[in-house]
């Protein structure tokens, strides 16, 4: 069959992957360093004490809880809107359809700073004070596309005739949605939600514009990066963020990887 990859290609690909992954390993390593003042490498010693210090910090806890709350609500909104849009666009053709697709992608296609400043100036113009809800509005806006993309990919892979078969066997639109579409869409929606959650959980650019005095975990981290107070605590928070985004993303992958012959049609 096909020839083997050349050694040069293997090395180049290997270096590329190493470049992509090695930096995060250093973040994890630094969470255990005994050095407090600088980023000295290699760490002079290893310790677990910074985890205890971090967990005792109320500002970290407040930021974490706020981030989780924002991510949860933004995900629920994105799930509703994204699924509706996917249902409307999956197998239809009408004038303006492309414009709507573009509209859904726009919040992540445009640089985050534009989404951020646009929302901020709109809130200002309307005299809406910054709050928990202004953060949620920003996050939900760019999370819709993630759910939408997952749902529409699954809807397109399903044989369109299974919906017709359901109608044919006597089920009305609601029954068809409940007994046929939803069970087949379920894992894609779950995956979309997890990605939306992860996206919201570590978003920082839009949040800096739509948050008032409140600090989500990424905002907390950003402040620490610009004006460091206690570096080891930042290191530990970074590890927590890695863990909290890694798991939903991995789960989303397993939920949506190719499931063999996807539909009964085969």
């Amino acid at each position: 069959m096909r020839s083997k990859a050349s050694l040069k290609l293997k090395i180049a690909a290997g270096i590329g992957l190493l470049f992509l992954h090695a930096p995060l390993a250093f973040v994890i390593l630094y969470a255990f360093t005994t050095e407090e003042r600088s980023y000295q490498f290699p760490p002079p010693g290893l310790t677990l004490k910074w985890f205890g210090v971090t967990f005792a910090r109320p500002d970290v806890w407040n930021a974490l809880v706020l981030s989780l709350r924002v991510a949860t609500i933004a995900t629920v909104i994105a799930l509703t809107l994204g699924t509706m849009a996917a249902g409307a666009l999956a197998r239809t053709r009408f004038f303006g359809r492309e414009v709507i697709s573009l509209l859904i992608i726009l919040p992540i296609a445009l640089p985050g700073i534009i989404t951020g400043i646009a929302l901020r100036s709109a809130f200002n113009l309307l005299d809406i004070p910054f709050s928990f809800w202004t953060i949620v509005v920003g996050h939900a806006t760019f999370c819709v596309v993630v759910v939408h993309n997952n749902a529409i990919a699954r809807l397109r892979r399903l044989s369109p005739s299974i919906v017709e078969a359901s109608y044919d066997l006597g089920a009305d639109s609601f029954q068809t949605f409940r007994f046929v579409i939803l069970p087949n869409l379920g894992t894609a929606l779950l995956a979309g939600s997890m990605l939306a959650f992860a996206l919201s959980f570590d978003e920082v650019i839009v949040t800096t514009f739509t948050a008032g005095q409140q600090a989500t975990l990424p905002i907390w981290m950003l402040n620490e990066l610009i004006r460091p107070r206690q570096r080891p605590v930042t290191n530990v928070v970074a590890v927590i963020v890695i863990a909290l985004t890694f798991l939903p993303i991995l789960a989303a992958y397993y939920l949506t990887r190719e499931e063999g012959p996807a539909s009964g049609g085969g």
Binding site: H21, V27, Y39, E203, V204, P218, V241, I242, I249
Partner: peptide, 24 residues
């Protein structure tokens, strides 16, 4: 895909550690 979705700030932070004068 993992690095694509993992935290932007953490990735930037990782490089701050790496590129620091006394860094790796």
């Amino acid at each position: 895909v993992m690095p694509l979705w993992s935290s932007y700030l953490v990735k930037v932070y990782a490089w701050k550690l790496l590129l620091a004068k006394e860094g790796a």
